[in-house]
Simulated scan of single mutants.
Amino acid sequence: MPSLAMPILTMPILANVLVAAGALLAAAAIVPAAEAAPTGASPWSDDHASRARLIAGDATPQERWAGLEIEMEQGYRTYWRTPGDSGIPAELDWSGSRNVASVEVEWPAPARFADPYGAYYGYEDHVVLPLRVTPEDPSAPVSLSLSLFYGVCKEICIPATGEAALTLPPEPVGSTPAIARARETVPARVALGDAAHGLAVRAVALAGEDRLAVTVDAPPGAMLLAEGPDSGWFLAADEAADANGIVSVEIVHRPRDAVGPLPLRLTLVGADGAIEVETRVPPE
């Protein structure tokens, strides 16, 4: 009859077994910690060459700050709110959120890229879009729920999607460096003629049926972006100002039923900052 007794372990063998078991337990403890979302952030939502999540920021009595963070594989890009000649504008659906009166997306100043189809504007490798959240009840937590559609590109544009949810408490959670850094790169909102970061939009005038002349103060290499009131408009600005500081803007497409002055948003991006100006052409 075979013996049912367990083999006797010598002290050296037993020590090795205990060390190995301890290492396995430690590794098992590390893996979940590495996969878990940090405090104040939703889990990552992965898609083509990219992933997205929500991160929490500061809270004040009347508003909360959060951020939409998008990471991409090296060399991949995603698009600004107006992508340019090619690309996919992002769509952010907050309809599943609770205790939210509004979510305002703040867009950091983009870079300009070129492809065979023309120029487009966006961010390479990584971006955080600051989110200004106004709660319906400032004393209660906010439950953000995001359904995201966006584009990523390297050689061609590929649609991507993501889902993220995050609770923002009414009390401050402390400054989030990533959101603070992103807010510093959002264009300063100034009036027509006012200057900031060494930049100014001095005047806007009609220069033909489908052309505008925008007079700027800007160093060489500055970039002007022009947007109409909605996606029915498409405006394209020259890459550089002429010797008189005038950038020509072509109205490439306008809605057939468009009448009256054109509400215009101009973003002027320099090496040391950016500004945003809202005006109307011609002025009322």
Rank of each mutant, 00 (worst) to 15 (best):
R81I: 09
T10L: 06
L54S: 01
G193D: 09
R265I: 07
S147T: 10
E250V: 04
E171F: 08
D93A: 07
A236F: 03
A243C: 02
I251N: 05
A37N: 01
D137A: 09
V128G: 03
A28L: 14
P110Q: 15
R202Y: 05
N16G: 15
D47A: 12
R181K: 14
G193C: 07
V259H: 10
T10V: 02
P172H: 10
G151M: 06
S248E: 11
E63R: 12
G162R: 01
P32T: 10
G228T: 13
W94G: 04
L192W: 11
R181S: 13
S145W: 02
H48E: 02
E155Y: 06
P263V: 15
P138R: 05
V142W: 01
A52D: 10
N244Y: 02
T279H: 09
A258W: 09
P220E: 15
T267W: 04
G40N: 12
E63V: 04
G151H: 04
A114D: 14
P219A: 14
A66D: 03
A195R: 08
H48A: 08
A182R: 05
I70V: 15
D137I: 00
V216H: 00
A29S: 13
N99P: 09
Y76S: 02
S3N: 06
R64V: 00
A111F: 08
A274C: 12
P177W: 12
L224F: 01
G40K: 11
A5Y: 03
A109S: 14
A271R: 12
R112Y: 03
G162E: 04
L168A: 13
L4A: 13
E250I: 04
P261F: 11
